[in-house]
Design a protein around this nucleic acid. Structure first.
Lengths: 124, 124
DNA sequence: ACATGGTACCTTGCATCACAAAGTACCTGT
DNA sequence: ACAGGTACTTTGTGATGCAAGGTACCATGT
């Protein structure tokens, strides 16, 4: 295991949440999402995004329609279903709770590192 | 896929970070960690924690020593190695960047939902 | 000595999922 | 017809969370 791998792990699940968010704004297709995620510094590649979209579609949270493009092959434009909106709300609540839990852990470490310093050898 | 599953996914990777944080405070054994994580409302079970500790140990970020208990079997007390401290710092930076990226996505959705309302059908 | 219950750590097997890589298909310009 | 760009799809691999079951140690009561 290395740091890159750990960073990837940390992003899992968050990705799903961010993609739902982007789709909630209105109809978008995959390349739109890639641009948006990249600009938010959340790196994703096609091999991750397309299977993820298919999974969300099969779960009933997304729907799509084919739209002809004036330059290139047709595109799948995705929208959130009503169920998807409910799911997104639940994910957002989970995100805030998780962020708060992590903050709790970080904060407690900082608190304890003050009081616990008396147990450590003195610095040079 | 269901909401519970999605919540589990979202927690992946974060767990590793939180466990390193807890160990960074001083020597602890697995049950200590479970208590601490539970009190921060981050649910973990033994089947997750033990393999994770083994992985972190094998990666060189943790070390442990056996300590006799006055009541029960001996315990493995874990500490961070120097490499582990560096890794923890990197994980913490990643966490803050990730939280900021997610905040960017949420914020942009809120902004666009204001201006984009003119494109939607009027409510009844 | 033996059984029981509690604590602590470990292992196996399964399902999920990110990702790389390779493939398919459509459109435009020359 | 061919080349190049865009868009979507599929296959295979490796990592890993977790449920379930297992092993081992200790203290207590009889």
């Amino acid at each position: 295991m290395n740091i890159e791998n750990a960073q990837v792990q940390m992003r899992k699940g968050i990705l799903e949440f961010c993609i739902l968010h982007i789709i909630s704004r209105g109809e978008v297709y995959a390349s739109d999402m890639l641009d948006e995620l990249t600009s938010a510094r959340i790196m994703v590649v096609e091999g991750t995004l397309y299977p993820l979209l298919t999974r969300l579609k099969n779960s009933g949270w997304l729907d799509y329609k084919w739209v002809e493009s004036s330059s290139g092959p047709p595109r799948k434009y995705y929208v959130l279903t009503d169920e998807g909106k409910i799911f997104l709300d639940a994910m957002q609540a989970t995100w805030f709770e998780l962020a708060e839990s992590v903050q709790t852990v970080i904060h407690r470490t900082e608190e304890l590192s003050k009081t616990a310093s008396s147990n450590l050898p003195e610095p040079n």
